[in-house]
């Protein structure tokens, strides 16, 4: 390398780390941070009937110095109209309950995968990842087919005689929970699996040897040691579930309040881009705390391993 172009070679050699880590950094800057600021900018504008449908932040119309026009009316409006607050709370509640359900289902599953012998382990792990090979939208649509009034589940229940006539499954909170838990379960299981994989099984034996019954051993040894996996998995489910749009829209119909749907209708039905942007910015602010928590857990985990 240094023979052909010593200058560049040396530079690359001394700087390759910053170059390699710089590329994703630039990527995020361009495609995440820049759009974020555009949305922030729109959220501070006012809605007008024009194209684009919002006022400019900097007004050059006077000539000479531009005047800055910032409005926090959109945020104030969100706070005043209880619909938005209620929707946020409802979204957080649904995301929270879904996360707990994912944890209750995913924890034993991850544990079973770890304890599986030989190839079974990898087959089970593959089954967890397999759904990702089909489009997410398609999988949600197929749940509509399963849960519909004349759908597979209802027909089956009627056929075996548990119920006389179809019950309402689709377009309910229940359907939304089914959809979210089904979709986000792998995001719970995979971090738990990665964490449990590192768990020294002799620790559980040591606990039993020292007189801990299985449940006591679980709560004093296994659970604290898998806590980083639990937190990582929970946040990976909770954060996207809060802003989920497709699942409440397709499976919840008009019966389930979630912020993703409100955002969608503000933007598309009301054409109120500034309010839609404000809703989005508020969502980011609501989720910053769990996101920072997630980052902290990851960093702690990394420093413990090194």
């Amino acid at each position: 390398m240094s023979k052909t172009s010593p200058g560049f070679g040396n530079w690359l050699q001394s700087r390759w780390q910053s170059v390699v880590s710089g590329i994703p950094f630039i990527w995020l800057l361009l495609f995440f941070l820049a759009p974020f600021f555009i949305v922030l900018k729109i959220s501070l504008a006012e809605s007008i009937i024009a194209s684009p449908p919002f006022t400019r932040l900097l007004d050059w119309s006077d000539g000479g110095l531009p005047s800055l026009k910032v409005s926090i009316d959109n945020f104030a409006y969100m706070w005043e109209d209880s619909l938005y607050v209620r929707t946020y709370l409802s979204s957080l509640k649904i995301a929270f309950i879904s996360t707990v359900l994912c944890l209750l289902i995913g924890y034993p599953m991850a544990y079973a995968i770890i304890r599986a012998e030989g190839n079974t382990k990898y087959i089970l792990l593959l089954l967890i990842i397999l759904p990702f090979w089909t489009s997410f939208l398609l999988r949600v649509y197929s749940w509509m087919g399963l849960l519909a009034d004349q759908g597979t589940l209802n027909s089956f229940l009627v056929w075996i005689g548990v119920i006389d006539r179809p019950i309402r499954l689709l377009y309910s909170q229940f359907a939304v929970y089914v959809g979210i838990v089904y979709t986000y379960l792998p995001f719970m299981i995979l971090p738990l699996y990665a964490n449990m994989e590192k768990l020294d099984m002799s620790l559980q034996e040591a606990a039993a040897d020292l007189g801990a019954k299985p449940t006591a051993g679980f709560f004093t040894v296994t659970l604290p040691l898998t806590l980083p996996g639990i937190i990582a998995g929970s946040l990976l489910v909770f954060i996207p579930a809060t802003g989920e749009f497709v699942i409440p829209d397709l499976l919840g119909g008009g019966n389930v309040l979630m912020i993703g749907r409100v955002l969608y209708s503000e933007f598309n039905a009301n054409h109120d881009w500034p309010v839609a942007s404000a809703v989005a910015i508020a969502l980011v602010i609501v989720l910053v705390v769990p996101m920072m928590l997630y980052h902290k857990v990851q960093a702690a985990e990394a420093s413990r391993e090194s």
Binding site: S202, E205, D209, G211
Partner: peptide
Amino acid sequence: PYERPVNMMFQSYALFPHMSVEKNIAYG
């Protein structure tokens, strides 16, 4: 195992990494 009058010292020692030395010893 948890009802036997027997204790074991593991090859890997199997010390609980999240507990202090005192808490490890006090565990049993």
